[in-house]
């Protein structure tokens, strides 16, 4: 379970997370939605232990994440912008991940090569944005992580690849009970995939709901933001 209590994160004079509280039950596929700047990426970066919170708690199975290798070994994270070592090929990154993550599954890695069919010897930095995302997915799904954090995961992927990636995520969730936290501004896509949704605004959680198939998130979103002056285009694009 992921528990966030009164989380605060400031960047200079900007408060990105302003007392955020959220709960992600085990095995959930939790969609984090909100306008640009609502704090989705900051939330995820704090939950995976990249950022240190200025206040509050970010707990995974009751344990703090920041500088806690035991918890981090169970976490896979796909950032919005995928990073790799400058000269590294997919093979190099695989060896690096394998040396760090105890449950790295080489058989799975090889199998996923059929889905993410990219040149294994080419430096990753020469790949397009969408191809880099594919590398990140192949690595993340080979880690056998208990928690999968995805920040705008299908941005840059073509429709066929998007679908395949969602299918892999759904299968991992169903087969291994992987807990998935996914941020996206594509409400329609999240609507079909998620069973929980959290709506963020200005660094706070304004609504958390269990959803069950085909809820209209767009309507839910606008309802929750009712009375608030809001740039709708900002949310829906």
């Amino acid at each position: 379970m992921i528990e966030v209590k009164n989380l605060v994160k400031r960047f200079d004079d900007h408060t990105a997370l302003d007392g955020l509280t959220m709960t992600v039950p085990d095995g959930a596929i939790y969609g984090l939605v909100g306008a640009n700047g609502a704090g989705k990426s900051t939330t995820i970066k704090t939950l995976v232990g990249i950022l240190k919170a200025d206040g509050g708690d970010a707990l995974i199975d009751g344990k703090p994440v920041f500088e806690n290798p035991e918890v981090k070994a169970r976490i896979a994270y796909i950032p919005d912008e995928v990073w790799s070592f400058p000269q590294a090929t997919m093979q190099d990154m695989m060896k690096f991940y394998r040396s760090i993550y105890p449950k790295f599954d080489l058989g799975r890695w090889q199998k996923l090569g059929e889905v993410f069919a990219l040149d294994e010897r080419r430096p990753i930095r020469k790949f397009s944005r969408g191809m880099k995302k594919q590398v990140a997915f192949r690595l993340a799904l080979s880690m056998r992580a208990d928690y999968l954090f995805l920040d705008e995961p299908v941005d840059g992927l073509d429709p066929m690849m998007r679908r395949q990636v969602w299918q892999l995520i759904l299968a991992d969730s169903a087969d291994y009970g992987t807990t998935v936290l996914v941020s996206s501004h594509n409400l329609r896509e999240l609507e079909e995939i998620c069973d929980h949704v959290g709506i963020m605004q200005k660094g706070k959680m304004i609504a958390e709901k269990r959803v069950e198939g085909g809820e209209n998130l767009e309507a839910l979103f606008l309802e929750e933001l009712g009375g608030v002056q809001y740039d709708v285009q900002n949310i829906l694009l």
Partner: peptide, 18 residues
């Protein structure tokens, strides 16, 4: 449920509800 959820790319709860 799992089979249909993955092949249609929807959450298993959606299939369960149907």
């Amino acid at each position: 449920v799992r089979e249909l959820a993955v092949s249609l790319t929807v959450n298993p709860n959606t299939i369960q509800r149907a």
